[in-house]
Amino acid sequence: MPDAVEKEKLIGIIEALIFASEKPLTEDEIKRIVPDVSPREIRGALSDLRKIYDESSGGIFVVEVAGGYQFRTRSEFSEYIKLMLEEKPKRLSRAALETLAIIAYRQPVVRSDIERIRGVDSGGVVKILLERNLIRILGKKDVPGKPLLYGTTKDFLETFGLKDLKSLPTIREMGALFSEGDIEEQKTLFTTNDKNKT
């Protein structure tokens, strides 16, 4: 393959594309627009571009998020941006974050599982998360009552600046005191108890 696009120029093209893109720009899209370069060259240029921004003391940086690349302002300047934007930032309540964490790590998950872990009714929070498009309905669980299964959305990844679900931080595992089997056994115990309650 002829070396049609120089490296410097490729970095410039990609920078312009990311800037003008409405959504996080994917490597596939870059490949579609500049077909003559190899995926490896694209990845190299992206990495160089990120380095340029990381090493400068500018106000923006390139983030790999939800499967693509995007410019974002650095968090240290958030106060200034809030002064400029008249709208108050949308905050997530503790209940919403807890519920979101459970859904993110346990998806696909039904509401009763969320409520078993949190110990409180979570219908209202789930509704808010659905409205904010941070979670979505993945389908129905094939058990009596056909409860809805929930999972996170692409907006969730974008909101938290995550490349994919695998880049969620690993959560502390239960004490080594119990084998996974014990925990599973306890879980079934809880479920049957819950059923007896209602």
């Binding site: 983030v63 995007q70 410019f71 974002r72 302002t73 650095r74 968090s75 958030s78 941006i81 934007l85 930032p89 949308k90 905050r91 997530l92 503790r94 974050l97 807890e98 979101l100 964490a101 459970i102 993110a104 790590y105 872990i117 949190r118 110990g119 974008e158 909101t159 938290f160 600046g161 995550l162 931080p169 959560i171 502390r172 595992e173 239960m174 004490g175 119990f178 925990i183 306890q186 809880f190």
Partner: peptide, 28 residues
């Protein structure tokens, strides 16, 4: 076990809250 499990997700929620959240810490 219930408390331990709840604590894990409470911690996970705290971790999520420490992320650079779009429209709170970082902007487009």
């Amino acid at each position: 076990l219930k408390l331990a499990e709840y604590e894990r997700f409470k911690d996970a929620a705290r971790q999520l809250d420490e992320f650079d959240i779009l429209l709170r810490d970082v902007f487009l």
